[in-house]
Design a protein around this nucleic acid. Structure first.
Length: 262
DNA sequence: AACCCCTACAACCGCCTGAGG
DNA sequence: ACCTCAGGCGGTTGTAGGGGT
C-alpha cells in the first residue's frame, strides 16, 4: 500500500522465508491485489495516480462513470472518485491536525454527530474521510472509555486534555476527574442520516425568496430542537452548548442553505 | 531476530438520495 | 409510479509500520 508517506506498493516478494509474519504478509499482498471482473482493487499505484490526475486535469471533476475509461484505469467510478477526493485533490491539506482544528471537530461533532461531510465542510483542506479516521482513531475511543488516560499523555491524550480545558474551562478538580476517567462520554450517538425532525426539515426547506428573518427563525427552531435532543440524552448532560457552538451551527446551516439554493 | 500488538489511515462496501427516462 | 444510474455518505475492513517483549 502506499501510505501517507507515499510508499507505493512493491511487487510481493517471492516467498523465501518460512517465518509466519512473512507468510502472513504475502497473503496480505495477495488479498490486496485481488481483482474481480477486471476491476482492480486495493492500493493505488503511482502510475494509476498519474493517470487519474491527468484525466481530472483534462476533463475536470465529475462524470465519474466515464473517468475509468477516459483515464485508462481498471478501476470503478467510486474508487476513482474516492482516490481523487480523499488523496489526490490539490485542495487537500495533509499533515497533523492542529489544536484549533481538533477543537472545531469536537464542537462540530457535538452539534452534528457523525455527519463527517458537514464537519469537513467547515474545516478547509480536510476531507470527511480524514476527519472520520481521526475521530475514530484518536477521539472516539477516548470519549467512550471510562479508563484512565495513558500516563504518558502524548499527542492524543494531551490534545484531548487540552480540549477539555478549552471547551468547558473546567476547574482543576473537574479536570482531574476527567483525567481519572470518571466523566462519562460527552458525545451522544448520532443518526446516520439527516434528522427527520420537523425543525430539521423546515431548515432544509427554507426557500431563497423567503425572508432572512424567517430563515433565522427556522434555524433557531432547528437549533432548539437539536439542543433539546441533546438534553434528552443522558450521556450528553456534561456538555452545554455555548454561544460559539450556536454560532457554528447557524453558520453551518447558512452555508448549507446557500448550497441548497444554488 | 522474531513475533505480537497497536495505531493510523487508505480503500472498500452497502446504502440512500435525487435526477432522468 | 416505477426503474435505473450516478453521486455521495458513513461504517467497516485491511494493512503498513512502529514499538514492545
Amino acid at each position: 500500500m502506499y501510505h501517507s508517506n507515499c510508499n507505493y506498493i512493491m511487487a510481493a516478494p517471492a516467498c523465501s522465508s518460512s517465518s509466519s509474519s512473512l507468510v502472513r504478509k504475502n497473503n496480505r499482498d495477495v488479498m490486496r491485489k485481488k481483482e474481480s471482473d477486471g476491476v482492480r482493487k486495493g492500493a493505488w499505484s503511482r502510475e494509476e495516480d498519474e493517470l487519474l490526475k491527468k484525466c481530472i486535469q483534462k476533463y475536470g471533476e465529475g462524470k465519474w462513470s466515464s473517468v475509468p475509461s477516459r483515464a485508462g484505469l481498471k478501476r470503478c467510478r467510486k474508487s476513482c472518485r474516492l482516490r481523487w477526493l480523499n488523496y489526490l485533490s490539490p485542495a487537500i491539506h495533509r499533515g497533523k491536525f492542529k489544536d484549533d482544528e481538533i477543537d472545531l471537530i469536537f464542537r462540530l461533532h457535538k452539534l452534528l454527530g457523525n455527519r463527517w461531510s458537514l464537519i469537513a465542510g467547515r474545516i478547509p483542506g480536510r476531507t470527511a474521510n480524514d476527519i472520520k479516521n481521526f475521530w475514530n482513531t484518536h477521539l472516539s475511543k477516548k470519549k467512550l472509555t471510562t479508563h484512565e488516560f495513558p500516563k504518558n499523555q502524548d499527542k492524543v491524550g494531551s490534545s484531548i486534555h487540552h480540549h477539555r480545558v478549552q471547551l468547558k474551562e473546567t476547574t482543576e478538580d473537574e479536570d482531574d476527574t476527567y483525567r481519572k476517567g470518571k466523566i462519562e462520554a460527552i458525545y451522544k450517538p448520532q443518526p446516520k442520516r439527516h434528522s427527520s425532525s420537523e425543525a430539521w426539515n423546515k431548515a432544509v426547506m427554507v426557500q431563497p425568496e423567503e425572508s432572512t428573518a424567517m430563515a433565522n427563525e427556522t434555524n433557531e427552531c432547528l437549533l432548539t430542537d437539536l439542543m433539546k435532543e441533546n438534553s434528552d440524552n443522558p450521556v450528553s448532560l456534561d456538555y452545554e452548548f455555548d454561544m460559539t457552538d450556536q454560532a457554528l451551527l447557524l453558520d453551518a446551516f447558512n452555508d448549507w442553505e446557500e448550497l441548497l439554493n444554488s
